[in-house]
């Protein structure tokens, strides 16, 4: 069953590598052009790769809480119908608690990042 996925992965890689190979033949020059990055026509004063200030990092923590929650969500999906009301109540109380956390973070300004 996963064989198809493995074959597709190989095929996908072949498509990308094939495109690069084909380009060697069709391009005006197979060697890439060495160049500075585009900076409106100027030489950069420093390299762009740096410690970037991702000011939304508090949201990543919030995201992590929900992401871990998804681990419970997937198995839960398959048993809701069997277990019934208690499964729904338990899951949504849990989600409700997380959502309260989101609202608190929102009020604290964690979602505002500019």
């Amino acid at each position: 069953m996963y064989l198809a996925a493995a074959v597709m992965l190989l095929l996908g890689a072949a498509v990308a590598v094939g495109a690069w190979r084909l380009h060697r033949v069709t391009a005006v020059d197979p060697a890439p052009l060495a160049t500075l990055p585009f900076l409106s026509g100027w030489r950069p004063r420093e390299h762009a790769l740096s410690r970037f200030h991702a000011r939304y990092y508090p949201v990543t923590l919030l995201f992590l809480a929900f992401d871990v929650e998804m681990l419970y969500m997937y198995p839960w999906v398959t048993v809701v119908a069997e277990v019934g009301v208690s499964a729904v109540v338990e899951m949504f109380v849990f989600l409700g608690v997380l959502m309260v956390g989101v609202l608190w973070a929102w009020r604290e300004g964690a979602l505002r990042w500019v």
Binding site: L39, R45, E46, H47, S50, R51, H53
Partner: peptide, 20 residues
């Protein structure tokens, strides 16, 4: 070309400064 240097960011972190 030199690497980027640090500068104080909001939130008290030291983050790199770029001249763009």
């Amino acid at each position: 070309i030199p690497l980027a240097g640090g500068g104080d960011a909001r939130d008290g972190l030291e983050m790199d400064v770029l001249h763009v």
